[in-house]
Computed example of a mutant assay.
Amino acid sequence: MTNAQCACGALRLTFREPPQLTALCHCFACQRRTGAAFSANAFYAIDCVEISGTSTEFIRTADSGRKVRMHFCPACGSTVYWKADASPSIVGVAVGCFADPVFVPPAMSVFEQSKHEWVQLDETMEHFRGLPVGGNETG
């Protein structure tokens, strides 16, 4: 299984299981986090992830008022993973940190209410204007 790491390799994640979910997110927080029009995210059960290296934590408040804890490499600045208080048993990982062109494709696209008009996605994934009904904040 592929591992994830920051740009300089100092912060690494190793996984014992495949992701529980892969998703694209178009929310403004993810756009700002990535510097791109949307983020590509993989979500894992926290007990199957081993983290090595040091991270710096940035805590942001989600629209719900709950905290999302972003972990980035203090050397190169890459945001590698995050934990949301709304989903304490899940860790989100930036798909770009895998640098794997055959990584599992996204199953859904969320917060399309703020999707850039020029972004065109096919119908092989589920599409949501916000979060899926009953969904927790994950990014």
Score class of each variant (00 low, 15 high):
residue 125 M to R: 15
residue 62 A to D: 10
residue 118 W to K: 10
residue 20 Q to G: 06
residue 12 R to W: 01
residue 128 F to G: 08
residue 55 S to W: 07
residue 2 T to G: 01
residue 95 V to W: 02
residue 33 R to K: 09
residue 56 T to G: 00
residue 137 E to K: 02
residue 55 S to Y: 14
residue 35 G to I: 03
residue 73 C to K: 00
residue 132 P to H: 06
residue 53 G to R: 00
residue 70 M to V: 14
residue 67 K to H: 11
residue 90 I to Y: 04
residue 57 E to G: 01
residue 35 G to H: 05
residue 120 Q to E: 14
residue 53 G to F: 03
residue 65 G to P: 01
residue 119 V to K: 07
residue 85 D to P: 03
residue 45 A to N: 09
residue 90 I to Q: 13
residue 49 V to K: 05
residue 70 M to K: 03
residue 110 V to P: 02
residue 130 G to W: 04
residue 28 F to W: 03
residue 120 Q to N: 11
residue 88 P to E: 14
residue 25 C to A: 12
residue 132 P to W: 04
residue 59 I to A: 03
residue 94 A to F: 03
residue 137 E to I: 09
residue 110 V to E: 09
residue 48 C to G: 06
residue 92 G to L: 02
residue 21 L to N: 08
residue 121 L to E: 15
residue 39 S to M: 14
residue 65 G to R: 02
residue 87 S to F: 04
residue 102 V to E: 15
residue 56 T to N: 07
residue 59 I to Q: 02
residue 63 D to R: 10
residue 117 E to S: 14
residue 2 T to W: 02
residue 58 F to A: 11
residue 64 S to H: 05
residue 103 F to H: 12
residue 125 M to W: 11
residue 119 V to T: 11
residue 129 R to K: 10
residue 73 C to F: 00
residue 10 A to V: 02
residue 10 A to W: 00
residue 106 P to T: 06
residue 94 A to H: 06
residue 112 E to R: 14
residue 99 A to W: 05
residue 77 G to Y: 01
residue 11 L to Q: 11
residue 21 L to P: 03
residue 20 Q to Y: 00
residue 123 E to V: 05
residue 110 V to C: 13
residue 109 S to F: 10
residue 100 D to S: 14
residue 131 L to P: 06
residue 93 V to G: 02
residue 61 T to D: 10
residue 20 Q to T: 12
residue 27 C to L: 08
residue 80 V to T: 08
residue 62 A to M: 12
residue 85 D to V: 11
residue 97 C to D: 08
residue 17 E to H: 11
residue 133 V to F: 03
residue 9 G to N: 07
residue 113 Q to F: 02
residue 30 C to P: 01
residue 46 I to P: 00
residue 102 V to Q: 15
residue 115 K to T: 08
residue 102 V to D: 15
residue 131 L to C: 06
residue 92 G to W: 00
residue 6 C to P: 00
residue 44 Y to M: 04
residue 111 F to K: 07
residue 58 F to W: 14
residue 136 N to E: 15
residue 55 S to C: 13
residue 52 S to Y: 00
residue 39 S to E: 13
residue 88 P to A: 13
residue 15 F to K: 09
residue 16 R to N: 15
residue 2 T to D: 07
residue 119 V to R: 10
residue 16 R to I: 03
residue 131 L to W: 09
residue 22 T to M: 12
residue 81 Y to W: 13
residue 83 K to A: 07
residue 92 G to C: 05
